[in-house]
Design a protein around this nucleic acid. Sequence first.
RNA 1: GGGCUCGUGGUCUAGUCGGUUAUGACGUCGCCUUGACAUGGCGGAGAUCCGGAGUUCGAAUCUCCGCGGGCCCA
Length: 852
Amino acid sequence: MELPKEYDHNTLEEKWMNTWQDSMYYFDWDSQKPQFIIDTPPPYPTGNFHIGNALNWCYIDFVARYKRMRGYNVMFPEGWDCHGLPTEVKVEEKHGITKSQVSREEFRRLCVELTETNITRMRKSLRRLGFSIDWSNEYITMEPAYFGKTQRSFVQMHNSGMIYQQNHPVNWCPRCETAIAFAEVEYDSRSTALNYLNFDKLKIATTRPELLAACVAVAVNPDDERYNSYVNTELKVPVFGHNVKVISDKNVDPTFGTGVVMICTFGDKQDVRWWVEHSLPLRKAIDKTGKMTELAGKYKGMSTTECKKAIIADMKESGILYKQEELPQNVGLCWRCKTVIEILSERQWFVKIKQDDILNTANEVTWVPDYMKVRLENWTGTMEWDWCISRQRIFATPIPAWYCTSCGKTKVAKEEWLPLDPTQTQPLEACECGSSEFRGEADVLDTWMDSSISALHVSGWLSDHPLLLPAQLRPQGYDIIRTWSFYTILRSKALLDKRPWDTILLNGMVLGEDGHKMSKSRDNFVIPEEVITKHGADAFRQWAAIGGTTGSDIIFLWKDVVAGSRFLQKMWSIVRFSLPHISEKPASFTPIDLWLISKLNRLVKETTEKMDAYQFDETFKAIRGFAWDILADNYIELAKSRLYGEDGKGKQAAQYTLFVAIETISKLLAPFLPYFSEEIYSHIKQESIHLQPWPQVNESLIDADAESTGELIKEMTSAIRRYKAENGMPLNAPLNEIEIYSTITDASDIAGASNSTIKLKSGVPDFEMVAKQIKPNMKVLGKTYRNRAKSIAEALVNADLNLACAGSITLQVEGEEITLDSSCFTVEKERLLKGKAVDILEVGNSTIVIVR
RNA sequence: GGGCUCGUGGUCUAGUCGGUUAUGACGUCGCCUUGACAUGGCGGAGAUCCGGAGUUCGAAUCUCCGCGGGCCCA
């Protein structure tokens, strides 16, 4: 059956997608094969699988398919990280409600409903991209089967003292009305006014006059002689009139403002540090919604912005504020809604951060690329306080705890009671005080509490299966090192005292064609579906493979995708040509067959090494280069005359060589191009290529001599081609007569490829060999003669050519006599003909004589 | 302000534990419709490897300084 001339990606990709069985990719919990568990990132179900995700999944699929072919028991699970604010916001938008207008249960139900719709859409994208996902190991974090584990992890860590409750300053988003972790704070440069105030006997400068009501101390630098005498005295706070102490602290910058700073609870993180260090009192002037409290007197009920405006106007009028200047400032923002965060002291749940544990565990993991580890190390060192895990939201894993209504004591659930929602159920035992009246904890868990046990979940933790931790691979983007990597390492260590994975593979960010991060506002946004429709999943996957080095940012370029689909068409043409000619029956190879086979084995060796090192770009480029350049442009051209010619040994050898090459290449391509490779393999064998083993290297067939002989034949052929091109002949034009003086023993392929008769001659043609110039070998000279190498090289170039041809040169360099043997230089020679009507082509040590 | 990272023909990119014709793709120019492929083949042009200094016999590669981009943070 002849293949159609064009490769039709639309039809064929659809065909295979609908043919493949999910069970091909199931992980076998009872297998004897070595395990390869991948801790796939669970995407947030927005409904759209964006191109950055797609890049990451391509990497994962390359690895999964490769490892399966290498004989591993591979798990490529698919998770969905459902909980979180964006879905709550979407639900409010979609139904035109706010979360307080419906019951908690009803609001949760609407969130679940939206999430399920989105997951269904995203599953389709994953299938269409040809990912070999193990759907028997799908997990959905909002389902009881998963969030029950999140809750059990909470209980276990609470019982081991890793989780505790405390009144502590936390980052607070007044719009979302919830505490957030450091990882959720973004920073932005703004400009603000620095206000100079008459503050009792002193003058201070502050950017936050609205916090005057929350002022708990005034600080000066201990070395600042202007203010030494005021330390430990009391000052009356302007406007509000309460007294605060003057303290000294070396972290006060005497050159900033007036050198006097007011400490409020809390203006910024520095206030928190001073507050802790000097055991200062707490004055809450801002409430959870960002409004001023009673403490702010007449400003009560105003937002911080309104209050700032009002108090500045008042103080200007009363002469308290005597100067203002512009000041650039960085403010913390809520990463979800970009609202300026406040620092409030609230009772929250925290996870202890043991920096040494995290750093030591990170060191047990192989980081690819290795420099990414530094990011985790730097982040680990900068945490100001423990991980705040409680959130004042609804759509998240409930914190399994209650408060006794009579004694106020906290009761945390027992593991066997889980999963549960404490706002819906009561604990199964009474409080120590005897009361059985409880109020359920309404706070919920940070979503990272869900996703940070993904590695444990997929490895069989708290299941009927054996625990297979550590997993082998964590693939993720470098943007979430400080969150997902950090928290996963923390949790795995805390819960099981083990590293979560053997290796972490970081991918870069996808940039738009203009080199900037893709965003709708820049109009450089591309969705995977658009690419698939135009060029197919395999072309998209090629862009992912060759667009850039693993770990670095990668620009999405349409031309790369187009180049991908061109390669598919080229490969298709190769197969289309080859199919009628291939044969599985071995025969004795000719020199050019041996060359091809040697190169092919070298390719298998190289690609195996590079895949093991996660170098997808280099792997794919090597395969493509072999198929296009070596196989198509050279081998097939050279073997064509045998393939079309008379039956016989030579023909058989070419047929067999071609078979081996096509079969091997399809297998090497299988991890990258699942659809295309399956289609071409289906014309050779009846089984799926995705169940075949990865090609084995046959070292004995990698033969440098065979390669140089083949290379010589190839070079001679292209020299003849070039000759024809230069003389304006078509490439298939026969030449009068060709004589070849060379070490090769078989010129029939050259004859076929050049469509000419060839006389193979031994020895040297009847030409004069004239030495032309001496070329120094710097590699040898440099090592041997070090700093004299340069002057020796200069002398060498001008040395006697006759001596050079004899193999040894003696030179006078800097007054010293130096003898160089032939390893130090090469003599370039020119052959001059003696009056025959011919053209001469030189290839290495061989000479081609073309009789005109 | 700090950490990490990148800066290679017009464009994108490989090479980066030092070795003298710097890889490939796209684009471009010329030739070729040859029995797999014109979505092709053959050939050419095009790069002071961001700038400067240093180390070295020798630097795209190592060191330092500077300039510019990206990411993460303060």
